[in-house]
Design a protein around this nucleic acid. Structure first.
Length: 944
RNA sequence: GCCCGAUUAGCUCAGCGGUAGAGCGCCUGCCUUACAAGCAGGAUGUCGCUGGUUCGAAACCGGCAUCGGGCACCA
């Protein structure tokens, strides 16, 4: 970057690509586990390989990268590990849809060919995603990139499954599971979404089969929202305390359409106040009924097949789809006189998250993880403050879910995923897998053979059978492998894995609140099974919980305030915004929006035009920094911060000391904010400091010192002017240099580019790997900052007066300040040069008001600010009406203030109870306001 | 039903006990040799409603309203 070639506007595209390539080529973010520095690690939430990323991922990436880049500047040994997730159901359903559109089916294709296709898809989608992440400037270690189906991660999954099974935490059994007929697989409770749906409540007559009761009752009326399940009824339940039915308990019903004899049982679960107080019980098709059935020994009759159609047990309804069967059952009941009434009924229906169809509770044999023992450890850890949630309120959400947790169904009837490491000894059950087939859970086929041989070999041979094994065809829930992510990616289960030793537990997990259950809790639960022993972390670690902090962020919402998601189709691709405004601008905009505690953010974006005012604002900020540096390069005389060195404190002007004090303060504040995940505040603070204090004031004030004018044309500069020029250069170089470091976590490419331009750092060195500037405590001076604020205010008042007077910018005018406060007078005199420069003052005088009373002509433009009167004695030019208006405004403002302050002070309770310093401040303010009002009134009267 | 958020300027949002803030938008004047993606100046709010605590409330507490989210759900 050289002065001559530096354009007036910043063009991010080339710059960003260049630095991304340079960082990666140099391995800048590829850490060595044995390197010095406190370890700091983050594993990124692996995006699903279901296509491409949207702004939500961009947002999360910006947050994570800001955190890790900051920690790197802090000198930590930082690992940020990227990767992607295989997303079993999502990817498989995408592929099945594709195959279906081509007229085929996955079964035609066969498992191997299907998986081949899935890997091809993964390559494409994963490539797209990685490209998007790179484009954002993510400072991750690409050499450690992982995919949840990698061999290494598969090894971890198998190991985890086997160990959990050994610990008795994984079992196989026949239970009601959430069956998704669309994907043909079981899904976990978390993958079910309850949706309010308009349905019906059908009331059916169920006749008593053993005659009329004493009171003349010959039937019961039950109500149901799912008539087709009636075919599987094996009982009717009433509340034990319900007097209406007390006499009927123990008697028998003849199930309509089926003719089965089913008992009437008494069960606490029944709510006597709902409907008729009688409930049909279908244990094989409803979770509550399953529980009732279990309590009363009712048989389980499954009437539905796995594709959602009725099976042979449904008799004449067999073969019908479940919804056709519903209509057919209702029609049959009506025809046979069993339908009492139908009423509209709005109720919650469980839908499959992925399949988008109602799930069917279906009796099926699945693998489950016992959740309570795993959850109990996590609750105990949480009691010790691990992990720490930011914002803290999410801790409750996490804890509540871990309390009263249900077992986790981990098997999926899918092909794309980690195959379950269980081998069935099918030779024991006629060559097929049945619920009764014995199995072994081991690490591989060879081990399976050996173990099965040991257990069944002899008996098998005795029976004249050859031992025959078959691996479970099912795969594991995707979240099972994601749940191992923080340690499987670091090398677990290898006990000698260096990465694991250095970087586990990770430092912070940054993720959205929507996956606290799915993912955060699963990671802590699974870590508890492998990385602790009796509550003590294995390997001498500080903790077994996989992350010290959990930073929960909000979601990115679209212009209609809807959560951005792939399924809703409202996702915004970050790439067009990056191309238009730059990755740094997008990152800065996203982070700057997130000041609050995990609130959702809304990104304004016009889909038609591609405009985003928010990102444009950040782009403008980038350009502002670009130009500030450009200005510096034009004015440092070819020197760099290093060659210039720090200025001698004795040489500093008031303005110099002010900006250096501000710089030190902002340094401290920003480090504190980055370190505590207050990233939005950090971004806002830097924006204001850079734009308002550095650009608007400091650079403007430095200009005349950087470019001194000789007193007489052609005469060389004085030694003083040259010395001061050097001080000005030192200040400018220092402020800008340090500012670029502070900004780096937010705007990595721009800051890297400008830093190289400013410092002339050699190729191969990176701002990304520099040290955060030491806090210059000696420069901090609160009193000075307050003084300088007064100078700024004085300049503002002059500028305002000039605007009121309608003076042309180039028109010089004399300025007179009147103040009775000596300290203020001193500051104004010290800053008179600055005032001259920034207000086009023809002259600046600072006078005592008493001494100067008669000097001020009535026809002088005047304003009052605090204890300061500002006069513009430019009689010929003054617009009297404007002058009056200005004074009247001042008076009104002062009076309003007086009223408020006097009211407070008049309250005896205030003086009595408020802290003395507050009262004193109030009195001082009142005195100021009164003085101000009096001065302004005097001026106004003087005008006549 | 239970639990969390949110409600502040036209818009998007900070502020969380001591006289209401930012960005964008708006109005006025400026191409002032870093930047018009800019500069200077300006206008704009019964801080959702309602009680209470306090000398003092946008902020703390209670209730209500509206919007959003999560969890649990009765056939």
């Amino acid at each position: 970057m050289s002065e001559a070639s530096l354009p007036k506007t910043y063009d991010p595209a080339g710059t960003e690509a260049r630095w991304q390539a340079a960082w990666e080529a140099a391995g800048a973010f590829h850490p060595d586990p044995s390197a010095p520095g406190e370890p700091f690690s983050v594993v990124i939430p692996p995006p699903n390989v279901t296509g491409s990323l949207h702004m939500g991922h961009g947002f999360e990436t910006a947050l994570i990268d800001t955190v890790v880049r900051f920690q790197r500047l802090q000198g930590k040994n930082v690992l940020c590990l990227p990767g992607t997730d295989h997303a079993s159901i999502a990817v498989q359903s995408i592929l099945e849809k594709q195959i279906k559109a081509e007229g085929g089916s996955k079964d035609d294709l066969g498992r191997d060919a299907f998986l081949e296709r899935a890997w091809a898809w993964k390559a494409e989608s994963g490539g797209t995603i990685v490209g998007q992440l790179r484009r954002l400037g993510y400072s991750v270690d690409w050499r450690r990139e992982r995919f949840t189906l990698d061999p290494g991660l598969n090894k971890a999954v198998v190991e985890a499954f086997v160990r959990l099974h050994e610990q008795g935490l994984i079992f196989r059994g026949e239970y009601l599971v959430n069956w998704c007929p669309a994907s043909g697989s079981a899904v976990s409770d978390l993958e079910v979404e309850m949706k309010e749906t308009d349905g019906h409540l059908w009331h059916f007559r169920y006749p008593l089969s053993d005659g009329t009761a004493a009171d003349g009752t010959d039937h019961l009326v039950v109500a149901t929202t799912r008539p087709e399940t009636l075919l599987g009824d094996t009982g009717v339940a009433v509340h034990p305390g319900d007097p209406r039915y007390a006499a009927l308990v123990g008697r028998t019903i003849t199930l309509p359409l089926v003719g089965r004899q089913i008992p009437i049982v008494a069960d606490e679960h029944v709510d006597p106040a709902f409907g008729t107080g009688c409930v049909k019980v279908t244990p094989a098709h409803d979770p509550n009924d399953f529980a009732i059935g279990a309590r009363h020994g009712l048989p389980l009759i499954t009437v539905m097949a796995k594709d959602g159609s009725m099976n042979a047990a449904a008799g004449r309804f067999a073969g019908l789809d479940r919804f056709e069967a519903r209509a057919a059952v209702v029609a049959a009941m009506e025809a046979e006189g069993f339908l009492v009434k139908v009423e509209p009924h709005r109720h919650s229906v469980p839908f499959s998250d992925r399949g988008k169809v109602p799930v069917e509770p279906l009796l099926s044999t699945q693998w489950f993880a016992r959740a309570e023992p795993l959850a109990a450890r996590c609750r105990a850890a949480l009691d010790q403050g691990e992990p720490r949630f930011v914002p803290q309120r999410w801790e409750k959400v996490y804890r509540d879910w871990l309390t009263d947790i249900r077992d986790w169904c981990i098997s999926r009837q899918l092909w794309w995923g980690h195959r379950i490491p269980a081998w069935f000894v099918v030779s024991e059950t006629g060559g097929v897998i049945t619920d009764a087939t014995p199995y072994v859970v081991v690490r591989d086929a060879e081990e399976a053979q050996a173990k099965a041989e040991a257990q069944f070999g002899a008996a098998s041979r005795a029976a004249g059978r050859a031992l025959q094994l078959e691996q479970d065809p099912d795969v594991l829930d995707t979240w099972f492998s994601s749940g191992l992510w923080p340690f499987s990616t670091l090398g677990w289960p290898d006990p000698n894995a260096a990465d694991l030793a250095t970087w586990y537990p990770t430092s912070v997990l940054v993720t959205g609140f929507d996956i606290i259950f799915f993912w955060v809790a699963r990671m802590t639960m699974l870590a508890g099974a492998f990385l602790q022993d009796d509550g003590v972390p294995v390997g001498g670690r500080t903790s077994w919980i996989p992350f010290r902090d959990v930073m929960i962020h909000g979601l990115v919402r679209d212009e209609n305030n809807r959560k951005m998601s792939k399924s809703a189709g409202n996702g915004i691709d970050p790439l067009p915004l990056i191309e238009r405004y730059g990755a740094d601008a997008l990152r800065f905009a996203l982070v700057r929006e997130v000041a609050g505690a995990g609130q959702d953010i809304r990104l304004d974006y016009d889909r038609a035009s591609g405009d985003s005012a928010t990102v444009e604002g950040a782009r403008n900020f980038a350009n502002k920094l670009w130009n500030a540096t450009r200005f510096a390069l034009m004015n440092l005389g070819g020197e760099t911060p290093a060659t210039l060195g720090d200025p001698d404190p004795a040489d500093l002007t008031l303005a110099d000391r002010w900006i250096l004090s501000r710089l030190a303060r902002v340094n401290g504040e920003t480090a504190e904010r980055y370190g505590s995940y207050a990233l939005g505040e950090a971004a806002k603070g830097l924006y204001e400091f850079a734009w308002n204090e550095v650009c608007d004031w400091t650079i403007e004030l430095l200009k005349r010192r950087l470019n001194p004018r000789p007193a007489v044309e052609g005469v060389p500069f004085s030694a003083e002017a040259l010395a001061d020029q050097r001080v000005a250069r030192q200040v400018l170089a220092k402020v800008l240099n340090e500012l670029l470091v502070l900004l780096h976590p937010l705007m990595p490419h721009l800051s890297e580019e400008l830093w190289h331009g400013l410092t002339g750092a050699p190729e191969g060195t990176f701002l990304a790997l520099q040290a955060w500037p030491a806090l210059n405590k000696a420069a901090l001076d609160a009193a000075l900052e307050a003084q300088f604020a007064e100078l700024i205010e004085a300049i503002r008042v002059v500028r305002n007066l000039r605007a009121v007077a309608g003076l042309k910018p180039a028109q010089a005018a004399p300025v007179v300040f009147l103040t009775g406060r000596p300290e203020l007078a001193t500051v104004l005199r010290a800053g008179s040069g600055d005032i001259t420069a920034l207000t086009r003052a023809a002259s600046v005088q600072v006078l005592d008001p008493a001494a100067a009373a008669q000097r001020a002509s009535a026809r002088t433009l005047a304003a009052v600010s605090g204890e300061l009167q500002v006069l513009l004695p430019i009689e010929g030019l003054v617009d009297l009406d404007a002058l009056r208006g200005r004074l009247e405004k001042d008076i009104a403002k002062a009076e309003k203030e007086i009223k408020g302050l006097a009211g407070r002070l008049a309250n005896p309770n205030f003086a009595g109870k408020a802290p003395p310093e507050v009262v004193a401040e109030c009195q001082a303010n009142l005195a100021d306001a009164e003085a101000q009002a009096a001065l302004a009134r005097g001026r106004l009267e003087g005008l006549g």
